[in-house]
């Protein structure tokens, strides 16, 4: 059934972990990237992620189709985004406070509606076996790639292109960089932010569906261990660039696999330290890429934290 791969297990686990664990980070951070580029911060994506996981699992179980589950998660995420966008469009509302409220609300609602779906087993999303060329089962397992992962890559590239080369991208960037400039151009800032937040929410919902429908592949109340919150931080780390979001998500996924992999080859001392690897890595990279002259390179000018 298996071949002895010894120490090769560690790099393989990191690659496999990067592919398996990164997808929720990728979707949530792309969603947040879109929202923040339009000048809003939505901290509620953790709640959206959890609700997306629940609604996706429930729909997949009830209809028998995991793709309908993904769709349902996206619609629910869109709805949460709409609520956030709508409340923040009211005068003198702080988007960070609304985000935290919506995060707690989303999680509470998901736990409430999710009760009957903890036990049942819903169908999983299909995978593509990129490892079929190898006859080593471990490589085959590591290279089982979910379709959502590929969609995420395509989305990251498309989004980067959209921001740079299309009128839509320019519009979102203008709104995000300067209220005054956008108004002078006759853009409806509130409507654009409203829609960006909603689309960002939909992406976070899909990220949740990946958790419950593929990896680890079941719904329970402890499913998310803060992936939604970490992804929001990833956006800052990725300097609001969708392509960097992808690399950052991979990095987090791979670093998260380090702890279990090292224990499995017998390095058992200090596993709590290895589990902290993603955060240590982030800190190190942030320090390495920081600059004393340009604070927060690439930050949209109209964000409430930079304004």
């Amino acid at each position: 059934m298996t071949t002895d791969i010894g120490l090769w297990g560690v790099p393989l686990a990191i690659i496999g972990g990067a592919i398996r664990v990164s997808t929720p980070f990728l979707f949530v951070s792309l969603g947040e990237c879109l929202t923040e580029r339009s000048g809003r911060i939505n901290l509620g994506l953790e709640g959206t992620l959890v609700f997306g996981a629940m609604s996706g699992y429930a729909t997949a179980y009830l209809t028998g189709s995991p793709w309908l589950g993904v769709l349902a998660a996206a619609i629910c995420g869109f709805g949460f985004g709409l609520v956030h966008g709508w409340i923040c469009a009211l005068p003198r509302v702080n988007d960070i406070a609304v985000g935290i409220a919506l995060m707690l609300f989303g999680m509470g609602l998901a736990f409430f509606f999710g009760k009957p779906f903890i036990q049942p087993v819903a169908p999983d999303l299909p995978t593509i076996n990129l490892g079929a060329w190898s006859d080593i089962p471990q490589i085959q397992a590591a290279l089982k790639i979910n379709v959502l992962f590929i969609i995420g890559i395509v989305l990251a590239v498309t989004m980067a292109w959209m921001f740079r080369n299309t009128q839509l991208g320019l519009t979102i960037r203008v709104v995000g960089d300067s209220d005054a400039a956008a108004r002078a151009m006759g853009l409806k800032t509130n409507r654009i932010r409203f829609l960006s937040t909603a689309c960002g929410g939909a992406l976070a919902g899909i990220g949740g569906a990946y958790l419950s429908l593929y990896y680890p592949g079941s719904w329970n109340e402890g499913l998310s261990s803060g992936q939604g919150l970490m992804a929001v931080a990833l956006v800052i780390f990725a300097r609001w660039n969708p392509l960097n979001c992808f690399w950052a998500a991979l990095l987090f996924g791979g670093a998260g696999a380090l702890g279990p992999a090292l224990q499995s080859i017998g390095i058992t001392q200090g596993y709590y330290l290895f589990y902290a690897a993603p955060y240590v890595l982030t800190l190190a990279l942030l320090i390495a890429t920081s600059s004393p002259s340009k604070a927060l390179t690439g930050a949209p000018g109209a964000l409430s934290i930079t304004r």
Binding site: T2, I5, A13, P260, S264
Partner: peptide
């Protein structure tokens, strides 16, 4: 209770045989 880490741990054990 840490769903993702439990899944990673299970995979790592099986990868090691």
């Amino acid at each position: 209770s840490l769903a993702v880490k439990e899944a990673e741990a299970t995979n790592a054990l099986i990868d090691q045989g």
